[in-house]
């Protein structure tokens, strides 16, 4: 299988140096290995603060990995030169979470969409560029005559469409979507999700779709990876994950998805209520309904074909 992005044993630790005394280190990503195959949508699901956005930042070269390698189109993001990275940006683009802060308020739609073209020297001729930008606006479901308007004249959903259009100006092969619908109304979410699905199919994009919402992930993703406190705890094709969730955390999350006509039972323990973890132990152990604090399995293992899980407490009938 052709990999668009390959992450191997990625660690990211934020350290805060201080003038006096020692610094403080916060590990955010621990031993993350993931493969985003070409032309597929990979969902990355996890609760707030589990490291999803940090992973995106490392992929985009905004943060440097502490150790491990990130290969985008077989190029090591941390090793290549600035010029090579600039070329890589044409291949990999991003849609941000908040459509209100991700568009420069002092630029018109034309300026916003022209910027990537200017930077990479594409469509220098004015009429050709205008034609291209108008086609792009139509492609994301906006009227072509919106080019001269400012972001504040648009609704959140429309802004997110502009943001998607900006990501598509360079005709990328990989799209990273960092919670692109979580700031939107539910009715608008569906429209944007449909748009992302259509675009990823029409343009044969590989998409890393970050979300905390299983319902959204189920709608859009081919494969799903579940992240907990900086580790991937389970990954599987979407259908498989929803029918046979293996990791206790995944099952807890799926049980927490509200469903109409179903009574909620057994609220999960919030992360803040848990005690500190023992060194080397599974970071979920203190919340886990099945394990004591001594549970040490953190490595992913292939339980059934394509279905990886980092837990030894499997549901009955799912033995190795």
């Amino acid at each position: 299988m052709n990999a668009a992005i390959e992450i191997q044993h990625l660690y990211k630790t934020y350290s805060r140096g201080q003038w006096f005394g020692g610094g403080h280190e916060t590990p955010v990503l621990k031993d993350v290995s993931l493969v985003l195959p070409a032309n597929r949508v990979l969902g990355l699901v996890g609760e707030s603060g589990c490291g999803k956005s940090t992973l995106c930042k490392v992929l985009l070269g905004i943060e440097k990995p502490t150790s491990g390698t990130v290969l985008v189109e077989n190029q090591n993001v941390a090793k290549i030169s600035k010029t090579q990275f600039k070329n890589l940006r044409r291949v990999m683009q991003v849609v941000y979470q908040d459509p209100y802060s991700s568009l420069d308020p002092r630029m018109t739609v034309r300026q916003l969409l022209s910027e990537p073209l200017d930077i990479h020297g594409l469509y220098p001729q004015k009429t050709a560029r205008t034609k291209f930008l108008k086609e792009l606006l139509s492609a994301v479901g906006l009227a072509p005559n919106y080019l001269e308007r400012y972001p504040h004249e648009f609704s959140g959903g429309q802004r997110q469409r502009i943001s998607i259009a900006r990501a598509l100006t360079l005709d990328p092969k990989i799209l990273i979507a960092d919670e692109p619908v979580s700031a939107l109304d539910v009715s608008v979410q569906a429209q944007i999700l449909n748009l992302l699905r259509d675009i990823s199919r029409a343009r044969k994009l590989a998409m890393l779709f970050v979300t905390h919402d299983f319902a959204v992930a189920r709608f859009l993703c081919d494969d799903i990876a579940v992240m907990y406190q900086g580790r991937i705890v389970e990954k599987a094709p979407a259908q498989e994950l929803f029918t046979h969730p293996l990791h206790p955390y995944t099952r807890m999350l799926l049980a927490a998805v509200p469903q109409v006509g179903k009574k909620m039972r057994g609220a999960s323990t919030p992360a803040a209520a848990c005690g500190p973890n023992t060194e080397g132990a599974c970071s979920f152990a203190s919340r886990c309904p099945q394990a004591g604090s001594a549970c040490r399995q953190t490595q992913l293992q292939e339980i059934t074909p394509q279905h990886w899980c980092a837990c030894s407490h499997l549901p009955e009938g799912e033995n190795k």
């Binding site: 985009l60 600039k86 044409r90 979470q97 908040d98 991700s102 568009l103 930077i119």
Partner: peptide, 20 residues
């Protein structure tokens, strides 16, 4: 703000981000 990060991920260099 996100739009500054966005400009960086589009490949913009320091002076351009600062001035524009």
């Amino acid at each position: 703000r996100d739009y500054v990060t966005a400009a960086r991920t589009l490949g913009a260099r320091g002076p351009r981000i600062l001035l524009r």
